Amino acid sequence: MAYSGEVSTTVFNAIKVVDHAFRRCRLPAQAITAEMQTYALESLYLFLSDLANVKTPSWCIEKVILPMYENQPVVTLPNGTVEVLNLNYRTLQPVTGSVVSTSTSYTVNFTTQTTVDTIGIEWAGNAVPLTFQVSTNGIVWVTVGTSSDTATAGEITWTDISGALAYQYFRITSASPILYTVITMGNLPQEIPLGQLNRDSYVNQSNKVFPGRPSNYYFQRDLPQPVVNLWPAPFSSAEQAQLILWRHRQIMDTQNLQQDVEIPQRWINAIVDGLAAAVASETPAVDMQLMAILAQKAAISLQRAWDGDNDGSPIQINPGIGVYTR
């Protein structure tokens, strides 16, 4: 028996998801118009967005590094943030060396083998795409990371180097001029979890702009973007520290029928079933008796997908039972 030898390489983009959804509505290909494909794509967006109200899809857990600024307790979170899962205050051990810079590069010679885990840049102009490189001799360079963050003058961006190793030389390069005020490099990151406050606990703080090292936060689902309110408000040293956010974000938008849908292979059938039930309710040509069957099938498929969407780690339950004495 001959097998393909390939695993998870089949491309199942939005057009396939939409086409299969209509087929499950018992609609032939010649009956599907461009207008129907358009509202099916919109229904797919609504359906995927609504998944965030049920649970946290495992592939939508994301780490984000956020800067802090002195006396600014309100930190705006990235677009699509649904929930703050963890929020840590991280400090670094600064590393320094002799610097040689040009308009498009910044090279540091540490004189000894030194690890750089994180790079922070306070920009003097608009941020530009960056490439991070290391070298043992200052001649042959190896790329260890890139950055394409957006920022304006006065803002700070932080980038972690994944799997950082010790090298004598570290270089930041760009095809455009690097306009910066301060560049910070550090290692030995130390993280302290921040405690979460509810609205009443935060509102009842008598001085919400009291400066210090933030130890607590209140998460506010605001528009157009959610925010966290830090307490105490960041002091000056916090500008050399970072907020490490583990967030639940929305599933990526699918903007046209040629794009892939950001779902794992194990979820494809559930998404097709759910979309079929959604478009059936908006398509007059679909048999009304079929709608209940599609809805039931979608519920079963989604439940199966949710049941299998976990990391397999053991669950620890702490009931918080204390000693009772009279």
Rank of each mutant, 00 (worst) to 15 (best):
K297H: 12
L275D: 01
W246A: 02
Y218N: 11
R247H: 02
G163R: 05
L230W: 04
L223E: 04
A292W: 06
V228E: 08
E262H: 11
Q296R: 10
A276C: 04
D260E: 13
P234L: 09
N207L: 05
Y202K: 01
A299P: 00
D253L: 09
Q255H: 02
G163D: 07
P264R: 08
Q168D: 09
F170N: 06
E262F: 00
R249Q: 11
F219M: 01
P226V: 08
D307F: 07
M291S: 02
D222C: 07
S281Q: 15
P284E: 09
P193M: 09
M291Y: 00
L290I: 05
V227L: 01
M288P: 00
L294G: 02
Q205N: 13
Q242V: 15
I263K: 00
N198H: 03
T283N: 09
N256D: 15
N204K: 10
A277S: 15
A305V: 09
N204L: 06
S174E: 11
Q168R: 15
N207V: 11
Y180W: 15
W267E: 06
R249W: 07
M288G: 04
Q225L: 13
F210I: 08
P284I: 10
L275Y: 05
Q289V: 03
F219E: 00
I293L: 08
N216F: 12
H248R: 09
D307Q: 13
M252R: 14
N256V: 10
S174C: 10
T283W: 05
I268Y: 04
M185D: 03
V286T: 03
R199Y: 12
G186V: 10
Q190T: 15
R247S: 07
T254G: 03
P232R: 06
L294V: 09
G274N: 05
L257Y: 07
L194N: 09
Q220P: 00
N198A: 03
S174P: 12
D273P: 04
A298L: 04
A278N: 07
T181W: 01
I293R: 09
R247C: 02
R171G: 00
Y180K: 02
I300Q: 12
I293F: 05
L179D: 11
A278R: 11
S236K: 13
S201I: 05
V182Y: 00
L275P: 11
T181K: 15
L294R: 07
M291V: 15
N216M: 12
M252K: 14
D260K: 12
A276H: 01
I183D: 01
K208T: 13
L257T: 04
A305L: 07
Q225K: 13
Y202G: 03
L257V: 11
Q250V: 05
V272G: 03
N187Y: 01
Q296H: 10
A280N: 08
P226Y: 07
V227M: 06
D307K: 10
A277L: 07
I192E: 12
A295L: 03
S176A: 14
A233Q: 01
T254Q: 03
S236M: 05
D222Q: 13
A292P: 05
L194F: 07
I244F: 01
K208D: 03
S215G: 14
L223Y: 06
V209C: 02
S176T: 10
